[in-house]
Amino acid sequence: MLRFTLRRLLLALVVGIAVSAIAFMLLRVSGDLAIALAGEDASPAEVERIREQYGLNRPIIVQYAEWLWRAVQGDLGRSLFYPESVANLIMSRLPVTLTLAGLGLVIALLISLPLGIIAALRRNTWVDRGALGIAVVGQAMPNFWFGLLMIFFFGLSLGWLPISGSDTWMHFVMPAITLGWFSAPVLMRLTRGGMVEVMTSDYIRTARAKGLPGRVVVLKHALRNAIIPVVALCSVQFGNMLSGSVIIETVFALQGIGYLAWEAISRRDFPVVQGILLLVALFYVILTLLADILNAWLDPRIRRG
């Protein structure tokens, strides 16, 4: 277990360095940042001035090294738009996004676990097919469109929920449902698949032979084994939700880092864009690391092996 963890940590570190390089280089290789900052119709002198001002004329490796060195110390530069440091800006918005993703995950699990378990137990019945149908149709909907439909029905027509902003918990209901709804199908499929496999195993027969009620057989003996990959996937899904937050937060004008990212991208506020890219990518690296360790820890065969 220790060896496994250390090896996995090393990989995470290398991937972390790689994504930091990509987060930094991405904007520079996509086009001329100086022109993008100065605007399409700026004079060459103006562009040169901006190039000079932001140090964009130095070798890219030097720029990256300097940025990374500061980033490690928690300094991601200053926003070009807000009178604030990027780190402070991100930190002030991060709680909103983490709350949103957390709620989204809870909703995804509330949908996917019961449906997945029931679909597995009632395999090849209308319940199973219905759950699969919901998953297939659900995944085909564009998530921003789903969000807008919710805004229309629950916000505008019925007036139950606020349609934009992040002031109260009510503001989080629709975004979290939207986010959860799109994570549910993959979790449901994994739950169902795991349960189908586990329910035919010999130890489930043993559990029945002990005279345990169906509820105990399913929840204690089957789910405990089927849930291991699902728990790991939850961690990965949480990472996906952070990156998906850019669409959802924009739709609902929720003031998290997704919305900040969209604003920053639209305004060419590249230090903020780089900072958020780095943060979200590192979150993902850490979450997948966590998923692998969790996976191993939850399975006694690996934990004690």
Binding site: A36, G244, A261, W262, I265, I276, V280, L282, Y284
Partner: peptide, 15 residues
Amino acid sequence: LSLPVVMVALAVVAV
């Protein structure tokens, strides 16, 4: 997999 697809795509298209 560690790169957030939508954010990266938005940023590149913006530039």
